[in-house]
Design a binder for these strands. Structure first.
Lengths: 145, 145
DNA sequence: TATTGTTATACTCTATAACTATA
DNA sequence: TATAGTTATAGAGTATAACAATA
């Protein structure tokens, strides 16, 4: 049952893993500038202003248990960034909406996303375009846009 | 104080962030096959058999507090994967070494790294090579090898 | 005095299981 | 009976601060 060795794939894997761990170290400190954890940062990133999401949608997107979302949203709500609202269609559901404060913070966060976290500047423009194309396929966004 | 907008960089940033979060979801379940958390997985990955590391080195590499490493190593040691040894040169230091069990598990883990975690197969060989080159620069391995 | 590692404490993220209220 | 969300509980990862042993 010996797998065929693919040195390039193996190397790519290791680099991606390293990339993941490098990000894993830096993303939390980046997020901390906004007083957020990296998960809270992700949640805020997912929430479009004026487009409330059911809690269950969040659990799906984050691939985590629903009980987890409860605490996550508790903390964001305690800070006044989001609010739970009843869903008229199904009274079991609660939808999550950005508050004005949350929308402002999200905006600030997105504006900072052009900047510093990764030395993207070390890539030439055409390389950056190639990277974008590959990443789109890797994260499964190839078709959607 | 308006920053110049760079659409490509911004898009790359967003994709990298998405990539990070996609990995963040999948890496733990991948690691769980070996009965490890993703951080434990990272520690094991860093430990070459026969090359013990001081605890402080681990804290540096993981960019975390030393107190954190204590607990991390406690759990790995409890499972018999690593062991603390006194360092003869400096008696304040403890070095960490893989046990035979730890070395076997690490080996198994590395063998699995060729495989499934990312749909790398969707990239053409020359794209994969280009990706490797870019990632090397992004994670700061450009010079070292 | 400074450094290595530990302990105590606290917070966030995570899951499982049992529960409520709806459907 | 099944689903959406909560609560209770537990464990892992993280940090800060105080500490012991050693340098």
């Amino acid at each position: 049952m010996r797998k065929r060795l693919e040195p390039e794939a193996c190397r790519a894997w290791q680099l991606l893993m390293k990339f993941y761990f490098v990000q894993r170290r830096h993303l939390p400190e980046w997020a901390a500038r906004f007083g957020l954890s990296h998960v809270q940062c992700h949640v805020l990133h997912l929430m479009e202003p004026g487009q409330p999401l059911p809690m269950s949608h969040l659990a799906d997107t984050l691939s985590c248990d629903a009980s987890n979302v409860t605490g996550l949203v508790d903390r964001l709500e305690a800070r006044g960034l989001v609010e739970r609202r009843p869903a008229p269609a199904d009274r079991r559901v609660k939808v999550l909406a950005l508050t004005a404060t949350g929308a402002r913070l999200r905006d600030e966060m997105l504006r900072h996303m052009t900047g510093d976290p990764l030395p993207l500047s070390s890539l030439a423009p055409e390389e950056r375009r190639a990277l974008v194309k590959m990443l789109e396929r890797l994260v499964g966004e190839g078709e959607e846009r």
